[in-house]
Amino acid sequence: MTFAGHDLQMIRLLVVKDWQVYQKQLAGYLAGLLLALSLIGTGRTWSFNAGGLLLLVLLVSTGFFAIGHIVVNERKESTLPFVMSLPVTALDVFIAKLIAGLLIYLVPFLVVLSTTILLVLATSLPDGLLVYAMLVYFFMFLSYCVALCVAIAVESEGWNIFIQMALMTMLSPFMIWAGSLQSIATNVRTNHIVWSPEVLSVFGGEVLVTALALAVTCWFHTRKASVLQSS
């Protein structure tokens, strides 16, 4: 089946291939993430802090793992020539990489997200925490998307590590800054869930940056592919 010149069946096959290659390691990360969430859920201060830290570290590592394996290793381990020997275009391989990259991160991410919502609402944890948690989660998703796009577009391994490190170090300043937002600071320890305009505009900014990163990468690759295709 094709759509706008893309072979959807081949794209699906390549995505499934990436999923199968890394599903075991991914299951390991997911188990770790669920452990961290259960620590948070006990409600004691020490386990809440330990669980929170573990959760952040594991989410960042999952991102590192996904990018390192499905994008960087495909080049480093010379499996890319094998993929390119299949009846696919370079553009379809790119689309498949992007989808696989998002999917492989989104699965554990969405599990964490939904479990967090359940946890905050169902346990004695203050419900106001939810807004703050969502801001931080989406910041992590944004970081992942930017790093993924850079990894797909830039072949240099040094640059990729640099970008991932830079994004990671921005996490804690962001958490402090988001925590100091007035509607967060006043509601985070209460049971009020308040989506103030301030919070919503931060969300909007996050979505915008993510969409921009994806759009720029797509544009870049379509152009690269058309250079290859044109005669």
Partner: peptide, 9 residues
Amino acid sequence: DDMRLYKGK
């Protein structure tokens, strides 16, 4: 010569 398959599979 420079083509490899997936090590873990």
